[in-house]
Computed example of a mutant assay.
Amino acid sequence: MSDEAFTESSGDQTLPDSARRVAQLLRERGHTQSVVMLPETGKTSAEAAAGLGCSVAQIAKSILFRRREDDAPVLVVASGANRVDEKKVAQQVGEIARADAKFVREKTGYAIGGVCPIGHATPPVTLIDADLLELDSLWAAAGHPHAVFNLSPQELVALTGAPVADVALREA
Rank of each mutant, 00 (worst) to 15 (best):
110 Y>M: 07
55 S>P: 09
149 F>Q: 00
87 K>H: 05
47 E>Q: 14
66 R>V: 08
138 L>S: 05
29 R>D: 11
1 M>A: 06
57 A>N: 02
18 S>Q: 10
45 S>V: 11
169 L>D: 09
58 Q>D: 14
99 A>D: 04
11 G>R: 13
95 E>F: 14
23 A>Q: 11
82 N>H: 01
50 A>P: 15
73 P>G: 12
114 G>Y: 06
50 A>F: 15
94 G>E: 07
117 P>V: 02
144 H>T: 08
107 K>F: 07
108 T>Q: 04
101 A>Q: 03
127 L>I: 03
93 V>S: 09
118 I>D: 02
58 Q>S: 15
8 E>T: 12
86 E>T: 13
77 V>Q: 14
150 N>Y: 06
110 Y>T: 03
54 C>P: 15
94 G>P: 06
84 V>N: 05
30 G>L: 07
139 W>M: 05
34 S>Y: 10
43 K>R: 15
49 A>I: 03
100 D>L: 03
22 V>I: 08
17 D>F: 03
135 L>T: 11
10 S>R: 10
68 R>K: 15
56 V>F: 13
60 A>M: 07
83 R>W: 01
172 A>Q: 04
130 A>W: 09
36 V>E: 08
146 H>D: 07
90 A>M: 03
93 V>G: 06
148 V>Q: 14
128 I>A: 10
170 R>F: 00
5 A>E: 13
19 A>K: 02
165 A>Q: 09
66 R>I: 06
117 P>Q: 05
137 S>R: 15
143 G>Y: 09
78 A>E: 01
140 A>H: 13
170 R>I: 09
115 V>W: 07
115 V>G: 02
74 V>T: 08
